[in-house]
Structures are given as C-alpha cells and as structure tokens.
Design a protein around this nucleic acid. Structure first.
Length: 703
DNA sequence: GTCGCTTCCTTTTTT
DNA sequence: AGGAAGCGAC
C-alpha cells in the first residue's frame, strides 16, 4: 500500500474516507469538535493536488465570514494553490453573483444591501399608517418568507403566513425595493437562484465554472439556500455538505433541518460519512452536553466519543443575581489567567446581548481585559450609518431609504412634506432621487426648504464629482472624509460630543480609516459598502486580542475555548417560558452548542434573581439543569432548589380568569412564605401574567 | 419644521 | 433601562 502524503497522515479513518470520497455526492454528519473544518480544507487540497481539480472550479460556502477566512487560511496552508478556490459565505457569493449579473436580476450594478433596519424604513414608506414597530415585525416576516423562498406571488404564501394583509404588504415592499435598484439580505439568495433558473446562458456558464461545491454548517441552511444549491449543482457538480443536526440553532431564521434529512433524496447517489470522534473536549463535558440534547425527539441521534477521556466535572454555580454571576465569571477567568497567563483562554457565554452589561461593568472595575463579539456593532451606530447613507446615495441615486436618512441630516429645513413631494416626483419618472431633487424647487412650499434642498444637491454633486474624477489608485478614504466634513456631520457630532461626552466624531474618523483599503471609484465604493454590510467587523486585530471573550451562544458556533462559562441558566430566560415543542428542542441544541465549545473546563451559572428591562425578576434554575444527571456536575454556592412545587397548579393546566379570559399555566414557582405558589399564566391574548391563587378568586382552574 | 417632553413598549438569537 | 412614537410649544 503506497505511503499516504504527509497532509493526510494524521486523519482518522472516517476523516480520510470523507476526504478521499468521490463520484456521487457526500453528506458528512460531523459532531461537535470532530474536525470538520480540517476535513473540508484537506479535501479541497486533496482535490487540487491529487485529482487535478482546478482551484477556481471549487466553491466552498460557509455561514460566517470568520469561518470563510479560517477555511481559506487553513486550505492554503496545506497548498498555496487553494487560495484560488472560491470560499465565501452564502450571502457574499450572492452579492458577487448579482454584481456580475445585475441586469439579468433587474438591479443597479452599484446596488447597496439593505439591512433589517433599512428594510423597516422602506416598508414604513409604503405603509405609513403602520407604526415603525409594526413595520419592523412585518419586515422580519418578509425576511422569513424570503428564507423559505416564497415570493409575494407564491401560491402557498398563506399556508405559512396566514395574515390577510401579508401578501399585499409584502408585494408593496417588494415593488418599492425593486424601484430602488437595491437588495435586502434575502434577495442575495433568492435572486441568484431565480436568475440561474431563468437564464440558460448564465446557468451554463456557472455550471462550467463550479465543478465542486462544498457547504459547511449545512444544518443551518434555509430553503432558499437549498434551492440555490440545487440549481448551482444542476450541471453535474460534485456536492459535499457538512452538518450536525444537533447544532441546528437558526430555525427562527428559516433554517430547515429537513435540508439534511432530504439531502440524499435530492442528490442521488449520496454517501454518508459520520465523524463521531471528538478531539476538543473532555468526555466529562460531552456527557453534560449530551444529557440535555438527548431529551430531544427530533434528532438523527449519534454518539460523540471524546478522545480525551475523563476530565474534571462541570461546575454548577448557584448565584444571587447577575452581579454575583459576573463576580463568579471574573474569578474563573482570573484563576485561569494566573495559571496560564492568558485571559483569552476564557469565554463567557450568554443568551441575549443585553446580558453582557454586568460583565462589562465588573471587568472594567477589576481591570480584566475583554472583547465583546457582536452586540452594538460599530457600523450600526447612528453617526456611522448616517455617513454611510450619504455614500449609498452617491453609489445609487435611487436609494430611497438612505436618501430619506440624509436629505435633512443635519437638519436643513427639508421636512417630511418636502421629502414626500420629491419622492413622488422621482417615482413618477425614473426613480432617480437626485435628479428629482434638482427639479423639485417649484414643488416646495417654503423658501427655507428650497435653499436647504439646493444645499443638499450641491453637496452631493460635489461629492459625485470627486467620485467620478478620473485617476487610478487613489484611496476611497478621501471621499469619505469629504463626505463627513462637507455634510456637516463631523461638526455636528463634535458639538454633540462636547455636550454629551460621547465620541461620535472619533467614530467618524474611524470610518474614514476603514475606507483606506478601497479604491476611489464607483466600483470601489460599492465594494466598500458591501463589505461593511456583509462583514461587520471593524478590523482583524480584535480577534487576536489577549482578552476574555464575551459572546452570545449563537455567535460561538465553530469556536472553542479552554474554559467556558455558560451564564443565565434560568427558567424563563434559557429556555424562555413559552418555548415548547420545536422551540424548546432548538434551545436544547443551543445549550449543546454552548457546552461543547469548552475544551477543559465547563462552568454553568444560574441566578436566583436578575434585572430584566429595569425590573428585578426572580427565577428558578433552568429545566436544562434538571435534565443533567446530578452525578455529572459539582454544585457550588448552595443547594439546587427543587423544581416547581407539586399541587393543583401545574404547567399546561387550562385556566380561566375573570378579566383576562382563557389561558393555560406555563410555570409554577414557590412564592414567599404563606402566600402559596406563584402561578404564571399565558392567555389567549398572548399576555403572560402571574397570580397568587391563594389571594385571588378571579383565577379558576378548568377541568 | 424643529425641539423637547411624556408615555409606552420592548427583544432572543443574525447573515 | 433606554429608545421610539406622539404631542405640544416655539
């Protein structure tokens, strides 16, 4: 038997089989920490080196930019040729496709990408009688519809979105969005799939271009992405997907585990390889994670076995409130850092971004360096979005959302009435808001609005001139700087900073710096805006920072840390009280993901009370804690309170309340002494209220 | 049209 | 707690 090339020698038999598989299609079921990234990157290298596959014909799709970068780095470390393979997120692949085929998709080639907030604004423009909050909820349902591949004219739209008006509002939004020439996130998947289906020439070109398609984190792909994959692979490409049904945590965003289950049917000749050896965690950690996820009914089921047997038991810390929780986390991080000298060994995980606050406060106080992943993003700050909005209008003058945002910011006396008149004029012609603004003088009622608008027009024209001036190799930062200055944003925020003690002007400077790597040209500008929209990190340095990581559980996908502190394990927070069925199972998977990030130490924290939206609320430990066999962890800080007290009041019990109507009990807690149990009821109205049955006659148990 | 005050309502989770 | 909508005064 010939000796294996060096880069294949350390693979276990299953990994090797996955790497060397060819012919039909391949589904890799890869448990947490089983080396799936290694398998994918090695497979790319193997195809290029051993099978003569051109790297350009390999497309590898991931879900996050971080994962895409890591994959590129690791593949090119094996073979530099691999750097020419096409590694991207689904969304950036879609954007790349649409820039090159803008006309076929009915878009402006310099389109910008609307985020959720922009979509809400656009929708608000088409449905002014709804509140902004309602538009926000509606916008997220439209986004969901797109995740499912449902256009406004889809026959089965009502099946999933029964709301009477939904189709009409969705159609109105879509029409307006097409008029702007821009796209939202969902379009980055939907439109490429549509173009490929409808245009034979483009389809053939892409079928010839990509002969191998790899998809990472396949369990979190949605229906639209599955459709895109199918049409991309339709020319006989080799398809290999990697996923873990136990780590599917984006169902709320339209992810479909069925994509895994049905893969072998849709892609005939599929072989399945299972990777069940875990190289990351001690067995003691896998036992805890596995105990919770094992309660789920809808799973393929697999047994993950740790290469590192044994290991210290997980610690369960029962704490008074979020301040004690932060103190506990800081002790864990300090103990670790004093042993290894590395703050970066420790990560603190939480369910919602708002929970980071207590940790930030205390870490600041104790001088513990930390970095927050996600949360309040730089590019979502108001001043930064304003500056970007000017640039977006330069890039695409039909961009209604960003035009609205900046035409009167800082205020120039151009109010709602004037904006409405300009929009109507624009939509009556070609939709170009800048040319509509130039001719809008007679439409405006006051002298102030006329002079304000003309100031805006000459501002934008000046910037446009800079953008269109010929000249190679100048950096885009010059344009961004001029934009920030000439618009008056810089001055406005400098003044505000003095009053409020903020540092918004500095953020604007930062934005100017970020543009230094891009070229001053319309294409360079579009690229800059796209990079920001799809990859919202400020810089690379934050990843290598020597600091404790504060991060949501969702954001930890694909990461690992020697020490992991999972916080907020309280019933009502994680899982939420209204989680049941599939929602509850998704939360168990989220717990599984969180716990399996830990290599050496796993800490679980549960607070008895916590500040929530400005109010103090009492909690019992999460049901997930009760789902772990007590022998698998060590309890610190007191006794585990018993689960909800027994009695006539039990979760699930139907009830009737004189004032609130019918509902059912979702939770029962021990109340203060002599007050009897505290009962949480969810009513048909959707409200959740709590009662002491001992003190009220209005609440009645049915049946 | 703008500014500032009051009230109400909220949020999981993210490309 | 903090932000957004709604309202009244300039």
């Amino acid at each position: 038997m010939p000796e294996l090339p060096e880069y294949l020698q350390d693979l276990n038999p299953e990994q090797l089989a996955a790497v060397r598989h060819e012919g039909g299609n391949l589904l890799i079921l890869a448990g947490a920490g089983s080396g799936k990234t290694r398998v994918i990157t090695t497979k790319i290298a193997w195809l290029v080196r051993e099978r003569g596959v051109a790297p350009e014909s390999v497309l590898a799709v991931t879900f996050t930019n971080k994962a895409a970068r890591e994959m590129r780095d690791r593949a090119s470390a094996i073979d530099p040729e691999c750097a020419r393979a096409y590694l991207r997120t689904f969304h950036s692949f879609g954007a790349w496709f649409l820039r090159r085929n803008a006309a076929a998709a009915g878009l402006d080639p310099n389109f910008t990408i609307y985020d959720d907030d922009d979509s809400t604004t656009l929708l608000h423009g088409t449905a002014p009688d709804l509140t902004r909050a309602e538009c926000g909820r509606l916008a997220s349902r439209i986004a969901r519809a797109k995740d499912y591949g449902l256009a406004p004219d889809a026959p089965d739209l009502e099946a999933r979105f029964p709301d009477r008006n939904f189709r009409r509002l969705y159609a109105g939004y879509e029409k307006r969005l097409r008029e702007t020439g821009n796209v939202d996130f969902g379009d980055l998947i939907l439109l490429p799939a549509r173009v490929l289906r409808d245009d034979e020439a483009i389809r053939n070109r892409f079928h010839q271009r990509f002969r191998v398609i790899l998809v990472d984190e396949y369990q979190d792909s949605n229906v639209a992405q599955f459709e895109l994959l199918k049409v991309l692979a339709g020319g006989g490409a080799y398809v290999c997907v990697v996923g873990d049904d136990d780590q599917s945590i984006y169902r709320f965003r339209g992810a479909e585990v069925r994509n895994i289950l049905e893969f072998p049917e849709v892609f005939p000749g599929t072989e399945i390889v299972r990777l069940e050896r875990n190289y990351r965690s001690f067995q003691s950690i896998l036992d805890v994670a596995g105990a919770v996820v094992a309660r789920n009914e809808g799973r393929l089921g697999k047994t993950l076995k740790a290469v590192k047997a044994g290991g210290p038991k997980a610690k369960l810390a029962l704490l008074a409130d979020q301040d004690e929780e932060a103190a506990y986390a800081s002790r864990v991080a300090e103990a670790r850092a004093s042993r290894t000298g590395r703050w970066s060994d420790t990560a603190v995980l939480y369910r919602t971004n708002a929970q980071s606050l207590a940790f930030e406060h205390l870490f600041n106080k104790r001088g513990i360096p930390y970095r927050i992943v996600g949360s309040v993003r730089f590019y979502e700050r108001e001043e930064v979005k304003d500056a970007l909005a000017y640039l977006a209008v330069l890039s695409n003058p039909r961009d209604e959302v960003n035009f609205r945002r900046v035409v009167n910011k800082p205020s120039r006396g151009v109010g709602d009435t004037s904006v409405q008149a300009i929009l109507e004029a624009a939509y009556a012609s070609d939709g170009d808001l800048l040319s509509a603004s130039r001719g809008a003088g007679p439409l405006l009622k006051t002298a102030k609005s006329r002079s304000g608008l003309s100031a805006f027009v000459s501002l934008v024209d000046g910037l446009r001139g800079l953008l269109d001036a010929p000249g190679e190799g100048r950096p885009l930062s010059g344009l961004v700087e001029r934009t920030v200055k000439d618009s008056g944003l810089a001055e406005y925020h400098r003044d505000q900073d003095e009053i409020a003690g903020t540092q918004r002007a500095a953020n604007l400077d930062e934005l100017v710096n970020a543009a230094a790597d891009f070229e001053l040209s319309p294409a360079g500008l579009a690229e800059f805006l796209e990079t920001i929209e799809l990859d919202r990190r400020l810089s690379d340095q934050e990843e290598s920072l020597e600091a404790v990581t504060l991060i949501t559980m969702h954001n930890t996908k694909g990461l690992e840390f020697p020490v992991v502190v999972v916080t907020g394990l309280e019933q009502g927070l994680f899982p939420r009280d209204d989680d049941e069925g599939e929602d509850l199972e998704e939360q168990r998977r989220l717990f599984y993901v969180a716990a399996t990030r830990a290599k050496e130490e796993l800490h679980l924290c549960s607070c008895r009370s916590r500040l929530l939206r400005g109010r103090r609320a009492d909690f019992l430990p999460s049901r997930f804690i009760h789902e772990i066999p007590p022998g698998l962890y060590e309890t610190l800080g007191g006794r585990l309170p018993a689960p909800a007290p027994e009695g006539p009041w039990k979760p699930g019990l139907p009830v009737y309340h004189d004032d609130h109507g019918s509902g059912y009990v979702i939770q029962v807690k021990a109340g203060p002494p002599d007050s009897g149990p505290l009962v949480f009821v969810k009513f048909e109205t959707g409200r959740v209220l709590q009662f002491f049955p001992k003190f009220t006659r209005k609440l009645e148990a049915l049946k």
